[in-house]
Design a protein around this nucleic acid. Structure first.
Lengths: 191, 191
DNA sequence: TAACGATACGGAGCATTGTTCCGTTTAGCA
DNA sequence: TGCTAAACGGAACAATGCTCCGTATCGTTA
């Protein structure tokens, strides 16, 4: 209702701290995974607990902020792949490879994605809002081309792919990419 | 080394408490999932924290004890299916259906299975020790029949299936069975 | 430039949950 | 009946998420 046009700009120290926190969180996430204790991130950034929670009300908000760039890049790659690939199914497969690469290189991110812990809905919602439409576009194209079955929604496919990526980083014997490849192969219709 | 033949039998109250605990744990697992607080289980059973940890040193031991019957049943179903089915691939698919049914009906069990939290190795190890050989037998038969690709180990397949079952109970829109079906379909070689 | 109010900060503190430890109780035996 | 090993219960500790509030600082205004 109010929406004061341009809200008063943040104080300089607040902006600075937000940047510091993002850098620290990125570093800690790489070192200890996205489940790293909030205290560790605060310590790394040299700020108090209160500061971190003021800037990022939930851990999910912090994770989103840290990985926003990469999610955007993944989202934007979808239409590009659709144009440059030989077939829609190939484009879909390539795009899912990108998605898998993103997930498995972030310790524990795939696990956090499916966690039903309160506070992670935001994370879940952001990923889905941004990526499901892209996946839907690719999947629809492949269905229209008669290459894949039509009875699976994009969101289901992405949940499955996300789940297959869980634990991929902590277990050398587990090859998420291969399993996802098999899943995508299972999508194909017999010709 | 020592292995006193028949170790002295447990005291009657200890045996009774173990049973009570198993019943309470089963009830709490159904109500709140396998991640239910240990305190809740102790309270439900009317015993102290110490008692639960004495009988089951880790949560995994308790989970194993509660579900041992069903794991055994699943393991024994493997060879039976192989004999009664039309093809090894069909037997494999049916067996995996059993496995999936087991996982999705236990709130959070699939998640616990892949958790790399210390203390869950026992659970992991038990499931794998008991079920991987069965899955290997089915998979090998299907490979020998030329029905499925030969480059995926049974343990990998089971990890993938287990992962796909994560969160299946807490989200109505997610159909683990269907995704597992697609995965298994992806295993097939073109004829 | 000095004062002041809004903004932001820090970290103590509370809540939850896994796990351990030890003083107390009790079953089973002699 | 008395004794001892076995078992018990729950207080206490540790890790971690999250909140709250007294204090410090920024930025504006007189």
């Amino acid at each position: 209702m109010v929406d004061e046009g341009a809200a008063r700009p943040k104080r300089a120290d607040a902006r600075r701290n937000k940047e510091t926190l993002l850098d620290a969180a990125a570093a800690v996430f790489v070192a200890s995974g996205v489940d790293a204790p909030v205290r560790d991130i605060a310590a790394k950034a040299g700020v108090g607990m209160g500061t971190i929670y003021r800037h990022f009300p939930t851990r999910a908000d912090l994770v989103i902020a840290v990985y926003r760039h990469q999610v955007e890049a993944c989202a934007e790659a979808g239409p590009a792949l659709l144009e440059s690939s030989d077939s829609p199914h190939a484009a879909l497969a390539q795009w899912i490879d990108l998605f898998v690469d993103f997930l498995v290189t972030k310790h524990g991110l795939a696990g956090a994605m499916q966690s039903d812990n309160a506070g992670f809905e935001t994370l879940h919602a952001y990923f889905l809002d941004r990526l499901v439409p892209v996946c839907t576009q690719l999947l629809d194209a492949a269905v229209a081309a008669g290459e894949v079955r039509a009875d699976l929604a994009a969101i289901q496919l992405m949940r499955g792919v996300g789940n297959l990526c869980i634990g991929a980083d902590s277990d050398d014997g587990y090859d998420a990419r291969r399993l996802v490849g098999i899943l995508v192969a299972g999508l194909r219709l017999a010709r």
